[in-house]
Design a protein around this nucleic acid. Structure first.
Lengths: 338, 338
DNA sequence: CTGAAAGCGCTTACAG
DNA sequence: CTGAAAGCGCTTACAG
């Protein structure tokens, strides 16, 4: 490793104290420094290629300029896109991001939260899993800056950035109904998470607005642990026993798995069945027909989350903000939000 | 934030020095500590929930237990899978990973390298871009621990973990030839990178082994900057003017873009044309027919890279190791390596 | 406007 | 076997 240039080196070079050098290079507004010497310090720093030692600075300031991001499943393109955006965005504020994936498992979430706080991140952006209320709430109680992303929790005083899932789902369902479809099956994850419930609610309300009574038998709840098998059963039941004209998948992973199965049955879209999906997938580009789907404003979600968190960290504000964004229905081939 | 427990707190509690506490909790082998007091220290640490301050430790030890990973394009599933594996693997050694994406741009690679070294990462795992020789070489000269992943560079003394691209490509091409195909078009990136060249070499040698003289007109070099358009032209030329029976795409991004275009032409696989691809894609699961492709041992690549790097960091060894792994040809529907 | 000094929380060479 | 003290590279309250 090259020997690093220290504050002391600059100070020695100019015969001044490190205090002064530190003041100048940090643009400390509370202190007046002679214009000439300030200029010299800046020049020398530049010439010697000085880079502050973040570790030393962190030890004193108790800030690491690092954000811990915990998503629900990093192998899901929705979350990896989000992660990418957050990294880029945080970089603009000169923050580093470390990423963890809870894999929808609250135990793992807890582990990562712990690992990250030991590493002294300045704050968290987290996509909460089921049964995570306690740990998230304890962040809140301990005044750790954080923002919930993609999913909110009830009864918790927390910043969050989410989309209006009810509205999006209402829109999606309505789109099918507008085409004259009356029997819409819904496939959702069986997880106690607001955003999932909202999607089901939106679907039901849309049906009601068309004077259709929601039928429990058309709503299929899938366990995350065994979703491939369960989707097959759900699709079969909807198609064979209930003769649905359309299936609405409330997440991208469900949609992809469902489509695979539908194709394997030799069914054609939209001749044999209509489809609606929540979230974009790259895969949709390979079909002859367009799969209508809800597009989430990923970019905005990431940007807002970072902004909110850094506000919280740097201004040490206690003011809680909740950001609701709108998702849109993609009827063209490409999703403009990605 | 909760008040953190310090070494001093443990020391005060027991009426011993922090030195002793530090020795015990770090299992310092060079020092003998009384068994009884050691036990008490460990118990108290546990009871108080002591977690060492990594920042303070880092300042002294000059190690941050952090790895900088720089991939060529994090939006490419091949690299995001790799990133995931590396994070998990590094976690086992108690290392944190920060990830950057060069987007195949050497300027950006340089920026990230710089950003990460300011953050004092202990070492790098990097997928080099074109024109990155100088910066990588300077890591080597400055004794910064690092390992090259997925791509090697010539004339550089560096650890690396790569697959045998020549062999894999030979295998892939041979598979087509075995079926009796004589005219195989190849679509590759026009980038001066060993692994890409090796893939072209492997293709050519396989042809020769079947007494076919490689035809330059069947080898299409695609510029990264404008690849969508160029792929269309390449495919059209191969199909219309050269009547190839098969196209071999040497990366997953090329294959996906190419397939999109082939479908849009209304061509059927394998009736109208045979396909070979390098790398698995989730998309292949949605076709009626199997797209034969080279499967890279992603898991092994990540595991080996982390192992090599941490060896380098912790044992401060100068011994360079180059790890060559074999890729396999996937003829089943699923790729077993992912 | 400038500097000496304390301190962030550890580690470790040294002395006893 | 144990502890006082220096030091990692910064920041900043305080004194002048």
């Amino acid at each position: 490793m090259k020997k690093r240039v220290l504050l002391k080196d600059i100070a020695n070079e100019l015969g001044v104290s490190t205090t002064l050098v530190s003041y100048v290079l940090n643009d400390n507004k509370n202190v007046k420094v002679g214009a000439e010497i300030a200029k010299k310090i800046r020049e020398t720093a530049k010439r010697l290629n000085y880079e502050p030692n973040y570790i030393a600075r962190s030890l004193k300031s108790r800030k690491t300029q690092t954000i811990g991001l915990i998503v629900a499943d990093i192998s899901n393109p929705f979350f990896s896109n989000l992660a990418r955006i957050i990294e880029d965005e945080a970089g603009k504020y000169n923050y580093t991001v470390i990423i963890g994936s809870s894999d929808e498992n609250p135990e793992k979430l807890k582990k990562i939260l712990n690992f990250f706080s030991i590493r002294l991140v300045d704050g968290f952006i987290v996509v909460p899993t089921v049964d995570s209320f306690e740990m998230i709430n304890s962040l809140s109680i301990n005044n750790v800056p954080f923002v919930l992303l993609d999913r909110s929790l009830d009864n918790i005083s927390a910043n969050c950035v989410v989309i209006d899932n009810f509205k999006a789902s209402y829109l999606a369902t309505q789109h099918l109904l507008k085409k004259g479809i009356k029997k819409v099956g819904l496939i959702a994850y069986d997880a106690n998470l607001n955003h999932f419930n909202d999607r089901i609610q939106g679907y039901q309300e849309a049906l009601k607005s068309y004077k259709i009574v929601p039928d429990k038998n058309l709503i299929k709840m899938i366990k995350y642990s065994d979703f491939r098998e369960q989707i097959k059963l759900a699709v079969s039941d909807l198609v064979d026993n209930h003769k649905v004209e359309s299936i609405y998948f409330t997440t991208n992973t469900l949609a992809l798995e469902g489509l695979k199965y539908i194709f394997s049955l030799g069914m054609k879209i939209p001749e044999d069945i209509d489809i609606m999906a929540f979230d974009y997938s790259e895969v949709y580009n390979f079909f002859q027909y367009h799969i209508p789907h809800i597009c989430q404003p990923t970019k905005e979600m990431g940007v807002e989350a970072v902004k909110l968190l850094i506000e919280q960290i740097e201004q040490d504000t206690k003011r809680i903000k909740k950001v609701y964004l709108d998702a849109s229905l993609s009827l063209d081939f490409y999703c403009t939000n990605v």
